[in-house]
C-alpha cells in the first residue's frame, strides 16, 4: 500500500515538473508580447528577453486610440457584434443537422454526408472571388451578414462532423426508451441529446469563437469601412514598412485582443471536461 503511494506521488511530482516546463514554452510568446508592449522598436527586434531595458509606457493608452479615427473600443465591439451571433447560430444549426445525420436513416444519407465533408476540402483561395461576387449580388458586402447568415445555415461543416461523432457516442438505448415513452424526435434532441452533448457544444462554442475572433482573411475581403473593422483587421491596420510602425502599440493591442478568448476558455472548460461519466446518466 505504502509503496504504491510513493510510486503515485513520484508520478504526480514528475507530471507537475513536466507540465511546468512545457507550460513555459506554451506561455512564453504571450509573456513576450506583454513585455514587448513596454519596449522600444529597437529592443523588440534585437533581444529575446522578457524584461525591458528601457520601459516605455503609454502603449496601451496610445494604441487604444487607433489611427485617430476610431478607437479600439469600436473594434472590440465590432468583433463581438460579428462573432457572437455567428457562434450562436453555428451551434443551433450544426446541432440540428448533426442530429439528423447521426440518428436517422434516410435515402442518400451517405452521399449527402460526403458533400458535407467535401465542402471542407476545396482550398479557399479559389472560392474567394465567386463568394465575393455572390455576397455582392446579395448586397451583403461591408456588413457582418456574410458571417452570420451562412452560419445559421450550417455551412461550418467541421462542427457538423464533430457533433455527429459525439452523438454517435451516446448509447441509443437512451433515446429508444424515450421513444417508447412517446417522446417526439425533437423532444429527444432537447431532453436527451443536448444535455449529454454539453461538453461537445461547449467545445463548438470555444472553437468557433476563437476562430472567428482571429479570422483575418474573410473580414479582409468582405469588410471595407474602417468603421466596421473587427480586431483582426484593426491589429494589422498599421503594419506597413514604408511608414514607421509603432510596435509596442501593436503588441499592446494584440495582448488586449487575447483577453476575451482566454477568459472564455478558462471559465467554460469545466463544462467540456464534465463528461457523461460525471453527469450520472451513464455512470
Amino acid at each position: 500500500m505504502r509503496k504504491g503511494e510513493v510510486k503515485k506521488n513520484t508520478r504526480l511530482i514528475l507530471s507537475y515538473i513536466f507540465l511546468c516546463i512545457l507550460g513555459i514554452i506554451m506561455v512564453y510568446p504571450l509573456l513576450w508580447m506583454f513585455s514587448a508592449s513596454f519596449k522600444t522598436n529597437n529592443e523588440i527586434f534585437s533581444s529575446f528577453t522578457l524584461i525591458p531595458k528601457k520601459i516605455v509606457t503609454g502603449a496601451y493608452s496610445q494604441g487604444w486610440k487607433g489611427s485617430g479615427q476610431y478607437s479600439f473600443g469600436r473594434f472590440f465591439s465590432n468583433t463581438f457584434i460579428m462573432v457572437l451571433p455567428t457562434v450562436f447560430f453555428t451551434i443551433i444549426s450544426s446541432l440540428l443537422v448533426a442530429y439528423g445525420f447521426a440518428r436517422f436513416k434516410f435515402r442518400y444519407k451517405k452521399p449527402l454526408f460526403a458533400l458535407v465533408l467535401a465542402s471542407l476540402m476545396l482550398p479557399t483561395e479559389v472560392v474567394i472571388i465567386p463568394r465575393y461576387i455572390l455576397f455582392n449580388t446579395l448586397d451583403w458586402l461591408d456588413s457582418y451578414l456574410p458571417f452570420i447568415i451562412p452560419a445559421a445555415f450550417a455551412t461550418h461543416s467541421f462542427f457538423i462532423f464533430m457533433l455527429v461523432q459525439y452523438i454517435r457516442g451516446i448509447p441509443k438505448e437512451l433515446d429508444e426508451s424515450a421513444v417508447i415513452d412517446g417522446c417526439s424526435s425533437f423532444k429527444i434532441l432537447t431532453k436527451i441529446i443536448i444535455p449529454l452533448c454539453k461538453p461537445a457544444i461547449v467545445s463548438v462554442a470555444i472553437f468557433q469563437f476563437v476562430w472567428r475572433w482571429n479570422d483575418f482573411l474573410n473580414p479582409l475581403i468582405y469588410i471595407s469601412s474602417v468603421r466596421k473593422y473587427p480586431l483582426s483587421l484593426a491589429l494589422r491596420m498599421t503594419l506597413d514598412v514604408t511608414d514607421t510602425i509603432i510596435w509596442n502599440q501593436v503588441m499592446a493591442m494584440s495582448v488586449l485582443s487575447l483577453i476575451p478568448p482566454v477568459l472564455l476558455f478558462f471559465f467554460t472548460q469545466k463544462y467540456f471536461v464534465e463528461g457523461i461519466a460525471t453527469t450520472g446518466l451513464k455512470g
Binding site: 444549426s93 440540428l96 443537422v97 442530429y99 439528423g100 445525420f101 440518428r103 436517422f104 436513416k105 434516410f106 435515402r107 444519407k109 449527402l112 458533400l115 458535407v116 465542402s119 451562412p150 445559421a152 445555415f153 450550417a154 455551412t155 457538423i160 424526435s185
Partner: peptide, 15 residues
C-alpha cells in the same frame, strides 16, 4: 419522408 430530412434542411439550404 424521414424527419432526418427536416433536420438536415438548414444545411441543404446553406449548401
Amino acid at each position: 419522408l424521414s424527419p432526418g430530412y427536416l433536420y438536415i434542411l438548414p444545411w441543404v439550404i446553406g449548401f
